[in-house]
Amino acid sequence: MKTDKTTEETKKVWKHHIEAWDAGDLDEIIADYGEDSILILNNTVYKGIEAVRGVFDRLFQIFSNGKNIIDPEVIEGEVIYITWHFTPTNDDTYFGTDSFVVHKSMIKYQTIASLLYEKYPIGS
């Protein structure tokens, strides 16, 4: 069982991450990851800082053109889970989910899933 201290550390990482996301600050987003971090987006694996940076650079481009609503997060121990709804300008709303595993105040693993990325690809 994870301690309350672990959950509090995870909450701090989430707070920083979502503030950086809201600000569109790529460098601050990347500060939450390490060279051994792994991000899996719609079954494509991205490993390391530069790969994660490339994903978020593209995500900021996609999400700059529409309205995004992030539902309240669920945080338990080292795990964060979110659902979100993004409506690109002149398009339908897309539902997505993200899961994060935070270890030693860094995002070690992140998964992202949404049909959004079939129409607005990230690349590899």
Rank of each mutant, 00 (worst) to 15 (best):
I49K: 14
D32N: 15
S64H: 05
V79W: 04
V74S: 08
K47V: 05
D32V: 12
E78H: 10
G66N: 03
F60Y: 11
V52Q: 05
G48E: 02
G77F: 11
D36T: 13
D25W: 09
N65W: 05
L26A: 06
G48Q: 05
V74T: 07
G66W: 08
D36P: 05
I62F: 01
P72W: 04
I70P: 02
Y33Q: 11
N42L: 06
L41W: 01
I29R: 08
E50Q: 12
G24R: 02
N43C: 09
Y46M: 01
E76L: 11
N42W: 05
E35P: 15
V79S: 05
W21E: 10
I30W: 14
Q61S: 07
E76F: 12
N43H: 11
I29Y: 10
V55S: 00
D57N: 12
E73K: 11
Y46S: 00
E76W: 08
L26S: 04
F56Q: 06
L39V: 13
E73G: 05
N68A: 12
E78I: 10
N65P: 00
D27E: 15
E28D: 15
E78L: 07
G34N: 13
W21H: 09
I29F: 11
I69V: 13
G34Q: 13
I49E: 03
N42R: 01
S64F: 07
I75R: 04
D25C: 11
